[in-house]
Design a protein around this nucleic acid. Structure first.
Lengths: 341, 341
DNA sequence: CAGAATAATGATAGCGCTACCATAAATCAC
DNA sequence: GTGATTTATGGTAGCGCTATCATTATTCTG
């Protein structure tokens, strides 16, 4: 004899069984209607749908996920949302997921692998169908779970490395290298770099390394370098350019790690009466719309953020099982000549 | 006699029972350690934690959520992530949730109440502890579920209306009204408005209405008005200002619905040789950092996005039960005088 | 030091759903 | 028309965890 029944039930929340009873079918038939799975007679489906509407039934995905040991969640771990780059990636993911049953679940890691690991583990507790994260660098624990999990994995932005499953992005080292070659070819010789603390941003560091390699090849080097602590911002870019020009007045071009900071550089030029390009080249990275809306469009590199997100999500949807072969997709980038360098 | 056992189990995924067996305790004791709940002897806890580490155990939250009919998820529904406003709100939410067990789950509605409804229902299927959404306007179905659910609800950004549970934000009508008063007081008389399609953005519409009310009070009206289809952007603001000035050359101030577009206006001024403020006032909304980093800091209104997100999440954490009284928190706003109007 | 409170642990029975197998009815092949 | 498919539905047994109640070991009170 059971001691108690339905002890900790949600009293007024209707369950599938309630729907089934009202529709006069079995639980499992109602379940099939909800999931659009298996053959169902039109009349039966209609009855079940009517019952669902009448009761305001909302499926309990926890129960569903438990029973089927799987979910339609796609975990997305991004370093930041303040940096417009990642919202763009996210839009791409969203676009690919519309009209599918999959649902993105977003976490923000603040560029910290330990936070990434913590959020990853808490997401895995929901048995996601796939995990999307930024970069190829993770903690050993995170990497282990990514490799052994029964879910697809996409690592975005960067392709210089060995992915777990799928990598979608571009070579940031190459982009930095091409930046250097491009600017040298345009006649610039006295280079400065105004960046942010590079420790946390692997990709900015790769571009920086590529830039230096290109300069070295041309027999040049960075004459001056200036960095802010903390996150990159337009105001930081503005102050940094002022500082670097005070220390090294003879520069003829300054490269920034992104468009936000480069725009700060432009603003300093306007303020100080420096003509961009003619007196001082300014070069960014990302190809943000706002930089192209300026009176002098920013010279920069267009990274294809939306495409990266969209491509990754589409690839993940192709198969639930991880294939034997790893996939690397290079979405490339474009040099925007612009008017500032 | 059971026909089959463990038929559709995840073979190699360790469960709490595995942990308990290895640690030599009962399932429920292991569960208590995992959840840090109830009294546990230090030695026991240590043994269980060691077993967890050894097995690489990850709790199955679907099972946990099912058993306890509740979760530590906080559903966050935002209109957009391209608009930097919402990432700021999200950062505030994140900040409040750090060090708590709660985890934000983010959805993007594209300013569409129907999409909001769809995502809300799919989120409710995970039994979140709380729901955060933008604005006070939802579909009837969404509103019904919000009112009857056993979870806390916070409606952000706007406080002009009747919230379900908690509202945190500011009066956008009042902000528009104050904009009008402020500009009239500074001597502007010939007003233009350069906006985006207002149908989708209730708050921009409220500010617009407030602005017109203030002008009417001063015996003025909008001389010219220009709108773009589609989303707001800096480039749209630039083109719009050009268009509006062509149609109504005599304007002495143009108000934009946000800083992004207002910056486009500034860029047009620079391009066309118009001196902001002296020849033409430009006024925005939001108080973005980038606008304040410009050579002439943008005149605008600072909305407290981070504070809104943080306050909302903190309020939601105060109690799991919805109180009898509704709460409305006004985070206010500041007029940034700036240098462009 | 007896009786009461507290700390620490365990047994059991579901939470709501779906995988698996079985069955019955309808359709098909030839 | 008989056997073989296909279509439509149902019964049952868990999925992995936690709420509830029960039990025992330990500490406290005066």
């Amino acid at each position: 004899m059971p001691r108690k029944r339905n002890a900790h039930r949600n009293a007024d929340t209707p369950t599938l069984a309630d729907v089934a009873r009202l529709a006069g079918v079995s639980d499992i038939t109602a379940s099939r209607v909800v999931r659009s799975k298996g053959p169902i007679a039109d009349a039966t489906r209609a009855r079940v749908l009517a019952a669902i509407a009448e009761l305001g039934y909302i499926p309990n995905r926890a129960a569903g996920s438990l029973a089927s040991s799987g979910s339609t969640l796609m975990s997305v771990l991004l370093p930041s949302l303040s940096n417009i780059v990642f919202p763009d990636v996210l839009r791409g993911i969203h676009t690919a997921l519309t009209e599918t049953a999959f649902q993105p679940v977003i976490g923000v890691t603040d560029y910290d692998p330990l936070i990434e690991e913590r959020i990853l583990l808490s997401f895995l507790a929901w048995q996601p169908a796939a995990v999307i994260l930024a970069g190829l660098h993770h903690t050993p624990t995170a990497r282990r779970h990514l490799e052994h999990g029964r879910f697809r994995v996409a690592e975005l932005m960067d392709i210089d490395g060995d992915p777990v499953d799928i990598a979608v992005g571009m070579s940031h080292w190459q982009a930095g290298y091409d930046t250097g070659r491009h600017l040298v070819q345009r006649g610039y010789r006295r280079f400065g770099y105004a960046g942010h603390s590079i420790a946390s941003d692997d990709r900015a560091r790769a571009r920086y390394d590529g830039l230096r390699a290109a300069l070295k090849e041309a027999g040049l080097l960075l004459i001056a370098e200036e960095r802010v602590q903390g996150p990159s911002s337009t105001i930081a870019g503005r102050h940094l350019l002022e500082a670097i020009l005070r220390k090294a007045p003879g520069l003829d071009v300054v490269v920034f790690p992104n468009d936000d900071m480069a725009m700060g550089g432009i603003f300093h030029c306007i303020h100080a009466g420096i003509t961009p390009k003619e007196q001082l080249g300014i070069f960014g990275f990302n190809g943000l719309d706002i930089g192209q809306a300026m009176p002098l469009p920013l010279s920069t590199i267009l990274s294809k953020r939306f495409l990266i997100g969209k491509t990754a999500a589409e690839k993940l949807l192709e198969s639930r099982e991880r294939p034997a072969e790893k996939t690397i997709i290079n979405t490339g980038y474009d040099i925007i000549v612009g008017a500032t360098a």
